[in-house]
Design a protein around this nucleic acid. Structure first.
Lengths: 150, 150
DNA sequence: TATTGTTATACTCTATAACTATA
DNA sequence: TATAGTTATAGAGTATAACAATA
């Protein structure tokens, strides 16, 4: 607790806290979208699907297998939230939100924001501090190619 | 970007970042314990199981069904990491780490800390800022009783 | 030959319901 | 009667492998 020492214990504690926050955050997300009657994984896909994107790209972004994206796309299509459109490279199919899909995306995004722990529990000053920290934490480079996890 | 205004957009952005960090954090956790050849959910259970605890309590803490705790306990017992011990109330069984279990818990805890994004990507100053924010974010009170999610 | 998406299939995680034994 | 843990079972989520079409 003196100077630069505690680093190890401090890091351990922060790691644990971060994992705890992550879990809570996940639960919070589920709760936020509960009213929309849509499974969590479909909701996440819609939220990610801002602009039309090749299925392959989604697989990368969501870090899961291409075959699973097919399954997600089927389910979303059944609900009329998404449609497949041909890419110029004829092997490629883009996934694009329908009007209904975009609308739902907006509503969910709002709900998630409103339920946000960030909004409910942090002061303005804390929010200002938090942004750059989270940005630093996010890796643009895929440092996690090793593990699967959708 | 002026004063108190942007709050909504700012919150939305922070929420998204937090969700992203949460996912990354989950992936990072999986990667950290990959070397121990133990499924993520078992690892989490061991990490939570600091002191012997009634199975019921674990169900609450992990926010999942009692029957699933039975399943976890079985798997951990098979691996010799945990044992069931009778509580004074004869209905209750405590789950306690074996020597092997404690050892593994220490090793995993170390590994998680070493791989921690907190350690790798944040400055000392940022770490100092982060702690109280994460603490504020954590709800001791169970505000999430509504949703299941193990 | 390498890549995108699909199909068929199987496995893992997790919950629900009904049961046993205490209390 | 209510509570702790167990059993049997079913469902959701996700991956692997083999395949078709295109490049």
């Amino acid at each position: 607790m003196t100077e630069a020492p505690g680093t190890y214990e401090e890091t351990r504690r922060l790691s644990q806290l971060l994992v705890a926050v992550a879990e809570q955050s996940k639960a919070n997300f589920a709760e936020s979208i509960a009213e929309f009657d849509i499974p969590v994984h479909l909701a996440r896909t819609i939220l990610v699907l801002d602009l039309p994107a090749p299925m392959r790209e989604l697989a990368d972004k969501l870090n899961c297998d291409r075959s699973y994206i097919t399954s997600l796309a089927d389910q979303l299509e059944e609900r009329g939230l998404v449609e497949r459109i041909q890419g110029s490279d004829r092997r490629i199919k883009l996934l694009a939100l329908t009007a209904a899909g975009s609308m739902l995306r907006e509503e969910m995004s709002d709900a998630v924001t409103k339920h946000s722990l960030v909004l409910q529990r942090l002061t303005g000053a804390q929010r200002v501090q938090l942004a750059p920290i989270l940005e630093a934490l996010i890796s643009e480079d895929a440092a996690f190619s090793g593990t699967r996890g959708c």
